[in-house]
Design a protein around this nucleic acid. Structure first.
Lengths: 287, 287
DNA sequence: TCGGATTACGTGCACCGTAATGATC
DNA sequence: GATCATTACGGTGCACGTAATCCGA
């Protein structure tokens, strides 16, 4: 068996052309390299260099050996990274969600159950969520539609309904409820990270009316500083309460209401059982 | 970088289940293995085993690492063999031929020119000879037809004519020459290793009349001990002379005469230039 | 004379073995 | 008590460095 350090040295010699330069690059003395290359030759039982008493050059066999060396070194590197990466993934729960609110609800539940685990969260569209589950990019996902796939385990989580927040003097502020069609033509402030709600807004309102803010800071500042409408939801209102300076009106369209589901691969159902039961309990407590 | 010896030890532990058994298999002490596995873990920065204070078992990350280890070890082994093999091929000329006589002529010529080279020879049919040239199974071939391929270099070598050797009292022994058709119905002794001549014999004579001998010893014994006809050629007669107890008659059919060609890949024409010129000289000397 | 490879010699570290200890069945 | 892993300690081989030599442009 040829040890890795010999292959590294061989690769360095191939790269730098002379023993001296290779030795410098490896922080090694020339004699050490010279001996290593000799050792390699005796171990392999072939000569790898044309020796000119004052200069060495890889011969054909040497070049062939270098190709092997590179492949082995590459694989060795890949192992170092790959194993660490695999280990990290073992200790990480990656949650993909279609919307921010249920993600914010679920994350602490997971953290609590899997103390030693790292939890990473991400918003993504439905397609990426489902493919991510299969690719093991996500271990858990929050969806707003029940997936049909037999290989996924899916549990009902919670509901969310959209509201619009208007200034008191807004023409629509009188009604008990509004529709997306009523809102059409009004500029609306909204955050960028709202998941699938963005699709709904894009479909039901005019694109040019959507004042999308990448930073939540900016969004809150603009809400505060302007009299522009913005969205909220029953779930958010439960948390923060409504602003008495404004009027908060439900949106009555069907697609302003959604049901969230938690899903994972059937094969990992047991592994995340604690999450599912904790989520179920949390929902019941909330009623 | 992870050294090979650590990977070998890891693979052994994976294979044998316990440190003790693995250590025995590796002719190593348990403590040495124990330390090595710890070293591996610190080098990779992950834990590879579930330690039960009295028993260790690979965890998921460990199993993952073992897969890498196996691949690297396999590649390392492949390198050891592959490089030696490559080197051997560099120093070997493999000659494929369609018939034994020109092969016997050419081989010493090559040996003489390439002292340090090993020469291996082989009889094969035309198809294998041509594909073998391209696959680098053969570096040189002796053919009895000029190949059409543009990527092959081909040089005229020598001619050979077939003769039949008959007992003096044989009905055909009077004539100046015979044809295959004349011979049809007569049993004939012949060796198995006669290359493409066997095809000719099969085509022009009855299969059941061909008394094929795998061993040349057996063939010569049978020729000596019987009065059965057998083949020879002008080339062989030049060497051995004719037997005065028998009658040696030329076969006049066109396919009892052949011309041999030496061929190699165009790309290797220079490499074997010495062979081609030596062959040309040998032919001229012979005239 | 300088760049570059090899030889000779001494050194330290890293890997190994033996012995002892710990832990589990 | 048997099996198996770990810790402690002492030994040794081997890969390294320094110094010296050799060779060719």
């Amino acid at each position: 068996m040829i040890e890795i350090y010999l292959l590294e040295q061989l690769a360095a010699v191939a790269e730098h052309g002379t023993l001296l330069k290779a030795a410098q690059a490896l922080y090694l003395s020339q004699p050490a390299l010279s001996r290593s290359m000799k050792k390699l030759e005796t171990k392999l039982g072939v000569s790898l260099f044309d020796r000119d008493n004052s200069r060495i050059a890889l011969n054909k066999t040497g070049l062939h050996a270098v190709e092997y060396a590179k492949r082995i070194l590459e694989l060795d590197r890949e192992m170092c990274e790959g194993v660490a990466d695999f280990d990290r993934r073992q200790r990480t729960v990656s949650v993909g969600a279609c919307a921010p609110f249920p993600l914010g609800e679920l994350t602490p539940v997971i953290q609590e159950r899997y103390i030693q685990m790292a939890v990473t969260t991400e918003l993504a569209d439905d397609e990426r969520l489902l493919s991510g589950l299969r690719n093991r990019v996500y271990q858990l996902t929050i969806l707003h539609e029940k997936p049909r796939d037999k290989d996924l385990f899916c549990q009902h989580y919670l509901e969310e309904k959209l509201f619009i927040v208007l200034p008191k003097d807004h023409p629509l502020s009188d009604g008990k409820s509004v529709t997306f069609d009523d809102l059409r033509g009004n500029k609306v402030l909204l955050g960028a990270a709202i998941g699938f709600w963005m699709d709904i807004c894009r479909r039901r309102l005019n694109t040019e009316d959507l004042l999308i803010q990448n930073s939540m800071e900016a969004l809150y500042d603009l809400i505060e500083a302007s009299s522009l409408p913005h969205f909220t939801s029953d779930r958010i209102l439960e948390r923060t309460g409504s602003n008495s300076d404004r009027v908060t009106i439900p949106i009555e369209d069907e697609d302003a209401k959604t049901t969230y589901y938690i899903a994972c691969l059937n094969s990992e159902k047991k592994k995340y059982g604690a999450v599912f039961s904790a989520a179920r309990e949390a929902v019941l407590r909330n009623r």
